[in-house]
């Protein structure tokens, strides 16, 4: 069945965001809202966790919040 989604939560999409600028987990979740991806909240958390573990991005604290980022 076709699931409507205009945003896809993929490793490549996350990689592109993190190369552009450091982001918190909350920033990333805003980019992949469930109403845009068609995924459930639980799926979103699980998939994003797996992607971040694979990408293993650099981490830094900005304004006391952990941000992830990647360099090309």
């Amino acid at each position: 069945t076709h699931i409507h989604s205009d945003v896809q939560l993929t490793e490549e999409a996350v990689r592109r965001y993190l190369i552009r600028k450091p982001m918190t987990t909350k920033d990333l979740l805003k980019k992949f809202q469930t109403k845009r991806t068609g995924l459930s909240s639980e799926q979103t958390v699980n998939v994003l966790a797996q992607i971040l573990k694979r990408l293993n991005p650099e981490r830094k604290n900005v304004n006391d919040k952990m941000h992830f980022y990647l360099t090309e």
């Binding site: 918190t24 979740l29 573990k53």
Partner: peptide, 20 residues
């Protein structure tokens, strides 16, 4: 809702903290 977003962020942070 923002509280759902907060819960999701907390769950994701917890998953990733286990990984560190």
């Amino acid at each position: 809702s923002s509280s759902e977003a907060d819960e999701m962020a907390a769950a994701l942070d917890a998953e990733l903290n286990d990984f560190i």
